[in-house]
């Protein structure tokens, strides 16, 4: 019987010590993690829409019509310059070769792409993963949404990764029609 008490006591002491240690570490790191992720987002938005000083997140997202295939709009930010809206930044998810691709795309009021960044992807390393490269993404910047976005016409595909390229191009086309719907709001 004495033994049982010893077992229970030792287990309790170890568990309490462990939880206490973790709570201390967590209270320090938690704040740091939150601060960093906010900072990261702010920086990414700044790169996508360099002209803006301030970003405002839309609380509700307008429902997209079914013309947008394989594209889900995750977040929309208004890029404000001196309080005036100068563009929109969209966080969208499209399906690539290895899984979802999360993109951050900036569109100015005139309908020009001001920037694009790949936030997350699971494409094949060495092939599809080149969608992250500046060489590829820079082709899109400055393009107008009325451009055709056709592979090998105005967009050069990544060799060996047609599906990944197509996913990005399709996202742009889908975003063009979504932008058309929501620009007035």
């Amino acid at each position: 019987m004495k033994n049982i008490w010893r077992i229970a006591l030792s287990l309790t002491v170890v568990c309490v010590a462990a939880v206490f240690a973790l709570a201390v570490v967590n209270s320090v790191t938690q704040k740091e993690i939150e601060r960093r992720s906010e900072e990261e987002l702010e920086k990414a938005l700044q790169r996508i829409a360099p002209f803006a000083q301030e970003f405002k997140k839309w609380e509700t997202l307008p429902e997209a019509q079914d013309s947008i295939k394989d594209l889900s709009i995750l977040e929309v930010y208004e890029a404000l310059q001196e309080g005036k809206r100068e563009g929109l930044v969209f966080r969208v998810s499209t399906s690539g070769y290895g899984g979802p691709i999360i993109l951050l795309v900036g569109i100015s009021e005139e309908g020009k792409l001001t920037g694009m960044e790949v936030l997350e992807h699971q494409e094949t390393p060495g092939l599809g993963s080149n969608i992250e490269s500046a060489d590829f993404l820079n082709q899109f910047i400055g393009k107008s949404l009325i451009d055709p976005f056709e592979i090998n016409r105005d967009i050069e595909a990544i060799s060996g990764a047609t599906i990944s390229t197509r996913a990005i191009v399709r996202a742009c086309q889908g975003l063009a029609s979504y932008w058309e719907e929501v620009r007035e709001q």
Binding site: C15, A21, L22, T29, Q30, I33, R36, S37
Partner: peptide, 24 residues
Amino acid sequence: IPIFIVVISTFTTIVDLVMKAYLP
């Protein structure tokens, strides 16, 4: 064995949290 697991997971969590915070 349970005590080993608790101790090891404590240290693992510390590494995980610290890395998330300072080396994202």
